[in-house]
Design a protein around this nucleic acid. Structure first.
Length: 258
DNA sequence: ATGACGGTGTGGCACCGA
C-alpha cells in the first residue's frame, strides 16, 4: 500500500501533472494541498476517469485540501472540529484496507509569514488546536497517518541554510516544539525511519534557481502512529515532478506500507 | 534590506506563498 502527499500549488494548473504522476505512481491514496479552488471547480470527473475517488475541502484563491483514493473513504472531516477557521486546511477520512482501517489526516499547515506577526500567532493557535484534535483522533483510530505540508523544517538538517535562517519562519523553536509535540503523541516521522541522502528537501523556492542549486527545505511530512510503524517499508521524496516545465514548488513524499 | 518566481483576482497591479 502506498500513500503520498503533494502540495500542488493550484490544482487547476497542475491537474495534468497530477494525472501523469498518478499514472506513473498508482498510489492508493494521495493527499493534495493548495488546491486554490472551490469544490465546484474540483476535477472529480477527470480523476474518476483515472481511477480515483476524491473528497475535497476547497477555497477560492488560497489553501484547499483533498484526498484522492483508489477505494472510497468514510467518515470525512473538514477542518479541525471546534476551531473557528475561515481557511480550508484539513481533510480527514477513513480508508478500509485488508489489514484494517486507516485514519488519514491531510493538512495544509499555516505558513505563518514571520515570528511576531498575526499570521504567526494564527499558526501557533492552529498548531495547538491540531495537536489536541489529533490526540483525540489517535484515541479513536490507532492506525493513523498525519501528512501534508507542515510548513515546518523540523531540524537543522531539513534546511539548506540552518544557520542563516535560524529563528526565521519554518525554523523557529516554537514551530519545532509543535512538531515535537506531535511526535510526542506517539507519531513517527516516516522519512526519518530510514537512512536518507543528505540535503533531502521537499520544497524549493521558484526564485534564484532554488531547485537547481538544491536550496530547499523539508517541510512536507508523513507521520505514522505507533501501531503503523512496524508496517512502514519505505518513505521517499520524488523530485522528478519538480523537474517538469511549470512545476509545483513542492515535491511529493511517498510512503510504502507493508 | 530588497528582490528574485509563480498563482490568483478583476488588475493596470497587489497579495500571498515559504
Amino acid at each position: 500500500m502506498k500513500i503520498a502527499t503533494w502540495n500542488v500549488n493550484s490544482l487547476s494548473v497542475r491537474l495534468p501533472q497530477v494525472l501523469d504522476w498518478l499514472a506513473a505512481n498508482p498510489v492508493d491514496a494521495l493527499g493534495l494541498q493548495e488546491l486554490k479552488q472551490t469544490e465546484d471547480k474540483f476535477p472529480f470527473v477527470a480523476l474518476q476517469a483515472a481511477g480515483y475517488h476524491a473528497v475535497a475541502h476547497g477555497q477560492k484563491t488560497y489553501n484547499g485540501v483533498a484526498w484522492l483514493t483508489r477505494q472510497p473513504v468514510q467518515a470525512v472531516v473538514r477542518n479541525i472540529p471546534g476551531l473557528v477557521d475561515e481557511q480550508a486546511r484539513i481533510i480527514a477520512a477513513t480508508l478500509d484496507t485488508p489489514t484494517g482501517p486507516l485514519r488519514l489526516i491531510n493538512g495544509y499547515f499555516v505558513n505563518g509569514q514571520a515570528p511576531g506577526t498575526d499570521k504567526f500567532a494564527y499558526k501557533m493557535r492552529w498548531l495547538e488546536a491540531l495537536h489536541a484534535w489529533v490526540s483525540a483522533e489517535l484515541a479513536q483510530h490507532p492506525r493513523l497517518l498525519l501528512l501534508g505540508d507542515f510548513n515546518i523544517a523540523p531540524e537543522d538538517r531539513d534546511s539548506f541554510d540552518p544557520e542563516g535562517l535560524r529563528g526565521s519562519i519554518h525554523h523557529t523553536p516554537e514551530e519545532r516544539a509543535q512538531f515535537q509535540a506531535l511526535l510526542g503523541l506517539g507519531l513517527h516521522d516516516a522519512f526519518r525511519l530510514f537512512e536518507q541522502p543528505d540535503k533531502s528537501f521537499s520544497w524549493w523556492d521558484y526564485r534564484m534557481l532554488g531547485f537547481q542549486k538544491n536550496r530547499g527545505l523539508r517541510i512536507d511530512h508523513i507521520l505514522v502512529s505507533a501501531a503503523l510503524r512496524p508496517a512502514v517499508a519505505a518513505c521517499s521524496i520524488d523530485r522528478t515532478p519538480r523537474k517538469n516545465p511549470q512545476p509545483s514548488d513542492h515535491a511529493p513524499v511517498v510512503l510504502t506500507l507493508a
